[in-house]
Design a protein around this nucleic acid. Structure first.
Lengths: 215, 215
DNA sequence: CATATGAAGATTGTATCCAATCTTGTTGGG
DNA sequence: CCCAACAAGATTGGATACAATCTTCATATG
């Protein structure tokens, strides 16, 4: 397992989980004292981790009032996905022509993981493997800054995801699209790859916007 | 003047200046103790400001070794500008059709500032006003997250800029392009606006890459 | 001579403490 | 009854102190 070199690194990881899992609810204030205590650290590394999350848009910050878990409006959501489109399309456009045969084999391996996780109904494993799949593709672009920005956009909506993968029908559909995408990659068909990735995003948007509109 | 609500806010602003002006040189380690002392604060707000800059790619961080002023390679530079293209093109595409006549008047006013600053040879005033001009345009998109990402990309190369504006010939050329751009905006000519903005970036790239290649 | 060892100094990482600010609830006046 | 003023509590902002880690350089060892 990846060990933590610093406390703040571990805190950051735990915070991401707390936010993505909804244990820290959107809109809720992050009370530093109690949260730091519950994580077993002091407020200093917690605050530094929160600054990172602020930069990613996962939390908002108001001086002298503190940090609040980001509460996306539907407009925010639309903007995030629009930005994702721009960035992901570019990553794919650059990356697909650079894919080696080994890369594609590796992508196939990950898809096996995704389907295995799907079979055993392990939603969080599906989420993780799905993410690995898409980012392995994005990283083929050799544009680390671009990949980081895409990561930020994914994180920004993580708190609202997870619903999609809970429905078996969605999972089946996703697996099918994944396989189709790998076929397109093998053929180095950039436009088809982009189109399939876009279809994925559309699904996400519709599911997440349902979740947001609720309250 | 904009007063600082918190110290870290002021520290952040000062750090940006130190980096953009080259007083903190690329590659150089940021020694927290001495820098905090010279800024008149303790290390805590300084560290939080550095975390923000890390998120923007202005400094890099190595656990237990500290922060270092980002030292862009030419590849990094190319990537930053490629990302800028994606994001700025979108902002313009969305924003230009939304521009009101008052917005365009305002842009004209800013251009007067730019030219006034140019006439008085005030490089930093030119830089600031030029930035105001372009971001006023970007903000017309009503996409705050997108604008923030663009801002980050600009900041990432700030340390290397300023050379361009030092040459009077460049200034004259820039002013001319600005005026042409406003004309395109008045005509709501999206494609021409994008093209002019792209020309601006090309100039930046060539100048900044000269500076980077030097050592 | 090259390399391993280790100790001293420098620097970062975190905990704790206090000050500054905000929030909440209460009280008084209109 | 409504609203302003104010005090008490809660929470954040920042300074200091100490622990953990890294770097450097001298020394020993093969």
């Amino acid at each position: 397992m990846s060990e933590n070199v610093t406390a703040q690194e571990g805190v950051l990881r735990e915070l991401r989980v707390l936010i993505a899992s909804g244990q820290l609810e959107p809109g809720q204030q992050v009370v530093q004292d109690s949260l730091a205590a519950s994580l077993g650290v002091s407020r200093v590394p917690l605050r530094e981790a929160l600054k990172v999350l602020e930069g990613e848009g996962q939390v908002t910050y108001h001086p002298h009032r503190g940090y609040f878990v980001a509460d996306l409006s539907v407009e925010d959501l639309v903007e995030v996905y629009r930005i994702r489109s721009l960035l992901e399309d570019e990553a794919i456009r650059v990356g697909v022509p650079l894919l080696t045969d080994e890369d594609i084999e590796y992508l196939d391996d990950i898809l096996n993981d995704v389907e295995a996780a799907a079979k055993s109904q392990d939603v969080s494993a599906v989420t993780a493997a799905n993410r690995r799949f898409h980012f392995a593709l994005f990283e083929a672009s050799n544009m680390p800054r671009l990949v980081r920005l895409i990561k930020n956009q994914w994180d920004a909506t993580d708190a609202y995801r997870g619903v999609y993968f809970a429905a078996p029908a969605n999972l089946a559909h996703m697996n099918q699209e994944h396989r189709t995408m790998v076929a397109a990659l093998k053929a180095r068909d950039v436009e088809k790859s982009i189109a399939l990735q876009a279809a994925h995003r559309e699904n996400s948007v519709s599911v997440v916007s349902q979740v947001i509109k609720k309250p």
